[in-house]
């Protein structure tokens, strides 16, 4: 699952760092993820994992790291 998350981040996160090189717990906002890019990441994750983020999960913490995204996807029933 992490690799697919990193793939989405690499394609839609528009971060100035190599996503493959950051740890699962690294702060993505510190790494350059903007609020607008996080919208793109959210939509791309929905497409990739065939889920939909409910309003309750629209918070910065949901997308702050690869592990946080994985946790959110697991809660939404996304499968590898």
């Amino acid at each position: 699952m992490e690799e697919r998350i990193r793939g989405v981040l690499a394609q839609h996160g528009r971060m100035p760092v190599d996503v493959a090189g950051i740890s699962d717990r690294a702060d993505l906002y510190q790494a350059g993820l903007t609020s607008h890019a996080s919208v793109n990441v959210m939509l791309a994750l929905e497409d990739e994992f065939e889920i939909e983020f409910p309003q309750e999960m629209l918070k910065k913490k949901t997308f702050e790291s690869v592990s946080a995204i994985r946790q959110a996807l697991s809660e939404l029933g996304a499968t590898v």
């Binding site: 919208v39 309003q55 309750e56 999960m57 629209l58 918070k59």
Partner: peptide, 9 residues
């Protein structure tokens, strides 16, 4: 300054 989830856009 939402303490929890933010509103839908």
């Amino acid at each position: 300054e939402p303490t929890g989830a933010q509103p839908e856009w």
